[in-house]
């Protein structure tokens, strides 16, 4: 687990569901095949309606055309991030695009589990409505052990919620590493 994650922020609003994170038409690709796995990065967040894509101004593509990686490493969302389908392709797509941390007010349950158990990214929660306080393109730094986010562009700092129950899984890497560490599986 990295102690700090630094990069450009990409800001979206409330109820960004898994169909917006990775549209169903791309689920034909098999994440277990490396060449196909890359496609999820290419199409990550491609179905967010244009006006809500990269707040506050909108109209910012998360991944540039024909690229597999995003220039943004941190997603800032509102309420209920990752609602909708159970597709693990959603946190996987964000990770493939280069995202290591999402900060939202709270998450839909299955997305949260998938992000943690699959070891794709760290889903931080916060009481602050950061999607209205941070602008797409701001340089931010997340301090994982201290659970804080600093906006390096504006100098503002925000407290995030402690990771709590999920911290041991994040520290281990994923649910398999956690289960091995605790002796549950060989």
């Amino acid at each position: 687990m990295k102690a700090t994650i630094r990069g450009k922020a990409y800001v979206v609003g409330d109820n960004v569901d898994t169909d917006q994170i990775i549209p169903a038409r791309y689920l034909v690709y098999n994440p277990a095949i490396p060449d196909e796995r890359k496609m999820f990065g290419r199409y990550a967040l491609s179905a967010v309606p244009t006006a809500q894509a990269g707040l506050p101004q909108g109209g910012v593509p998360f991944v540039k055309e024909n690229a597999d990686k995003s220039e943004f490493a941190v997603i800032i969302g509102g309420k209920n991030f990752g609602c909708g389908s159970s597709r693990e392709h959603a946190p996987l797509a964000l990770r493939e695009a280069g995202v290591e941390v999402v900060v939202a007010e709270f998450y839909a349950r299955i997305f949260f589990r998938n992000a943690v158990n699959g070891g794709y990214l760290i889903p931080f929660e916060t009481d602050e409505r950061l999607c209205e306080k941070i602008r797409t393109g701001d340089e931010v730094e997340v301090n994982v052990p201290a659970h804080t986010l600093k906006n390096l562009t504006t100098g503002e700092a925000f407290a995030l919620k402690p990771l709590g129950d999920i911290l041991p899984i994040i520290e281990a890497g994923d649910v398999f590493a956690y289960a091995r560490k605790s002796g549950m599986i060989p």
Binding site: I110, N114, N117, V175, A179, I185
Partner: peptide, 17 residues
């Protein structure tokens, strides 16, 4: 509903948290 990782875990162990 669960994701692929959880389902892979169940396939191998028959258990899930």
């Amino acid at each position: 509903g669960i994701g692929n990782t959880d389902a892979g875990f169940v396939m191998g162990t028959g258990k899930l948290w």
